[in-house]
Design a protein around this nucleic acid. Structure first.
Lengths: 81, 81
DNA sequence: CTGTAGACTGTCGTCGACA
DNA sequence: TTGTCGACGACAGTCTACA
């Protein structure tokens, strides 16, 4: 093997706080991952990966996510760092 | 012709305002692309692509860029939208 | 409802080079 | 100093499916 297809990295320390923040925003809005993913027009499994700090989203994905959570981009990335 | 290797997309409307903002921040600090890229530990040519709205950086790249420009993440992405 | 696995396409991100 | 090109490895992002 060594085919390494579907990216499934372990939790990345750098991305973890962001993921927790996204989850907090979603919970605060009382939405399921599926609902947010649908509104953001992104994959539900991918959103799960983001919340768990396993994915490294691009700027365009962040824009979609902000839309899905109905917050502006600044609030989306305004976590502790 | 149709081999499409080294990513060299045309300007993406979605990414353009962000690029202009990054350029403004860099100019305000009186830095060259090379200096910022070095401090951010990223490729200079790639930074050029970002400023021109041709690249779609990931969250980790944004974190690096904030470091290179010596601003926090919020200021980095706080452009008009 | 959520997490994760497999498979696939397309792009990210780097390096070296040249205008 | 900046933009862009070629090549290439690695990963983003999607879809189906199952616990």
């Amino acid at each position: 093997m060594l085919l390494m297809s579907g990216r499934r990295p372990n939790t990345t320390p750098e991305l973890e706080p962001f993921g927790l923040h996204i989850r907090a925003l979603r919970k605060a809005a009382n939405l399921s991952q599926e609902e947010v993913a649908h509104r953001a027009e992104m994959d539900r499994g991918y959103l799960s990966g983001i919340e768990n700090g396993k994915r490294n989203p691009t700027l365009t994905q962040l824009l979609k996510l902000a839309k899905g959570l109905e917050v502006n981009l600044v609030d989306l990335i305004n976590y502790g760092e």
